[in-house]
C-alpha cells in the first residue's frame, strides 16, 4: 500500500458509546473529544440498555447541541432491542427531538426506521440492521436512510457489490470492541449475582465491561450488560486505502474509556495519507504486540477473532 497516493476524503466518526457510564463521564468524554480530536461525526445515545437512560433525553439533547456548536455532525443513536412501550416512546421522543434539531438518528432496530420514516427524520441505518446486500441497501434508502453502517461480519471485498451504483454514504466499523450480540439477560448484573430488574446499575462500575475468557485462559469476549462484545478490539487502520477504493467514505471508531483521542489522531493521519498504513497500525498498538492485541478476521472473511497479516 502506497501512502503517498491521495485517498478520497474519509470522514471519521465517533460511534455511539456502547458501555454504561454515568452521565457526567459521558459528557466529559464527548466534550473533551471536541477539543482533542477533529472527528467529523459524533454518534450520541444509548444503544444497549434502556435502564442506563435514567434521566431521560433532555441532558442528551443539551450535549448534542454543544457538540453541534463545535461544528460537528451529530447523530442521535437509538436502542438496538426495544421491547417495551417505554422504550418505544423513548425512541419516538428522541426522533422527534432530532427532527426539531435538524439531526439524523441512528436506527438500530426496525422500530426506529419506522418512526423516522413516519416523522420524516433522516436516519443512519446502524450495524444491527443487517445490510448484507444491495437489495437491503436500496430498501434502507427507500425508507429515508442517509448513510448505512455495514454489518460487522461482512468481508471487505463484498462492500462494492453491496453499494452497487448507489450514491449513499457507507460507513465501516473500523476500530473498537465488536458488538457481537444482544440478549434479554444482563450478563453484567448476572456476573455480580444480580438480576436485570435489580441491577443497581452495576455496569457503571465497569467502564470497559467485564472480561470473559476461556477455561484455559485465552481471551474471548467482553461483557457489556445485555451485550457481548469481542475482547480484542478490531482494527482496519492499515486498510484505509483499500476501504476507500471499495467505496467506504466514513470510518467508525467505537468509544472506549482510554486512548480515544490518540486513536482518532492515528486514524486521521492514516486517512489523510500523512503516515503509512504500517505506521498507523504501530501507532494504535502503542508498543503492544499487534497480533496478540487486535483482530481483523472479519475484514478478510475469516473468523472474526483472528489477526491476518497483510
Amino acid at each position: 500500500m502506497n501512502h503517498s497516493e491521495p485517498l478520497p476524503a474519509m470522514k471519521i466518526a465517533v460511534g455511539p458509546l456502547l458501555f454504561g457510564w454515568p452521565e457526567a463521564k459521558i459528557q466529559d468524554f464527548y466534550l473533551s473529544l471536541t477539543e482533542e480530536s477533529d472527528a467529523d461525526i459524533f454518534y450520541l445515545g444509548e444503544v444497549v440498555c434502556s435502564k442506563r437512560t435514567i434521566s431521560g433525553i433532555k441532558w442528551q439533547l443539551k450535549l448534542a447541541s454543544q457538540l453541534q456548536e463545535s461544528g460537528r455532525e451529530v447523530v442521535l443513536s437509538t436502542l438496538a432491542m426495544p421491547t417495551t412501550e417505554g422504550e418505544l416512546q423513548f425512541i419516538r421522543d428522541l426522533t422527534a427531538a432530532a427532527g426539531e434539531m435538524n439531526l439524523a438518528i441512528e436506527a438500530n432496530d426496525m422500530a426506529s426506521v419506522a418512526v423516522a420514516s413516519q416523522l420524516g427524520v433522516k436516519f443512519v441505518a446502524g450495524p444491527h440492521l443487517n445490510v448484507y446486500s444491495h437489495g437491503m441497501l436500496e430498501q434502507m434508502c427507500r425508507h429515508g436512510a442517509k448513510r448505512v453502517v455495514l454489518p460487522l461480519e461482512i468481508p471487505a471485498k463484498d462492500i462494492p457489490d453491496v453499494i452497487g451504483q448507489s450514491d449513499i454514504e457507507v460507513e465501516y466499523f473500523a476500530h473498537g470492541h465488536l458488538p457481537l450480540t444482544f440478549s434479554a439477560r444482563c450478563y453484567t448484573a448476572r456476573s455480580h449475582g444480580l438480576s436485570k430488574q435489580e441491577c443497581r446499575h452495576v455496569c457503571f462500575l465497569n467502564p470497559d465491561g467485564i472480561e470473559m475468557h476461556t477455561l484455559d485462559d485465552h481471551d474471548f469476549a467482553t461483557i457489556n450488560g445485555t451485550q457481548i462484545m469481542s475482547h480484542r478490539p478490531f482494527t482496519a487502520i492499515n486498510y484505509l486505502a483499500e476501504l476507500a477504493g471499495f467505496g467506504v467514505r466514513t470510518l467508525r471508531i467505537s468509544p472506549q474509556a482510554s486512548g480515544m483521542s490518540e486513536t482518532l489522531r492515528h486514524f486521521r493521519a492514516a486517512a489523510d495519507g500523512a503516515v503509512s498504513a504500517e505506521e498507523a497500525l504501530q501507532g494504535v498498538a502503542g508498543g503492544r504486540n499487534i497480533s496478540e492485541t487486535f483482530c481483523n478476521g472479519y475484514y478478510h472473511g475469516r473468523q472474526g477473532r483472528v489477526w491476518v497479516e497483510t
Partner: peptide
C-alpha cells in the same frame, strides 16, 4: 439466549454465522 439475527458470536469464533 441471544436476539436471533443479531448474533455474530459464531462467526467471531468459527467464521460461519
Amino acid at each position: 439466549v441471544m436476539a436471533e439475527g443479531r448474533c455474530w458470536l459464531s462467526s467471531y469464533i468459527t467464521g460461519d454465522s
